[in-house]
Amino acid sequence: MSFKGNGKFVAGFTVIVLALGYLAFSGYEESKAYYRTVAEVKVLPDDERHLRLKVNGNVEEGSIRFVGDGVDFLLIGDDQSLPVEYRGSDPVPDTFRDGSEAIVTGNIRDDGVFEAKKIQAKCASKYEATYDSEAHTITTVEEADTY
């Protein structure tokens, strides 16, 4: 573009870019979340305990308990389990159930319970799942055929 000798445009653009940069940074500081595995959360160093974390794992079968308007469950990853309490404002997603893959966002409490503000979940029998990789699906289909 040709702003040669046109300082006003450059000045205007600079002000806008700086303002947006500031907003972007403060938004980043406010919402950044660090990815951690269940095992890492179990032995989290003290200087990371205040961080907002994102933890990925599977919901342990039978561990889901609806409490009032929230839900408690165990998140399994690396053969370890993490107790999670969800009291967020949105309903638990449809895809959240026994065995589903879940990502929880929130903070670790001193008693070792993970306080989730947000749950995202994917069903274990994923949409892209194929018959060959999903042994259990085949059995169900075959059972349906024999019965």
Partner: peptide
Amino acid sequence: EKISVGPPFFNKVNVPI
């Protein structure tokens, strides 16, 4: 280090825009 940003980041920038 895998870090994600959430809606506050997007809203803070995009609302004034």
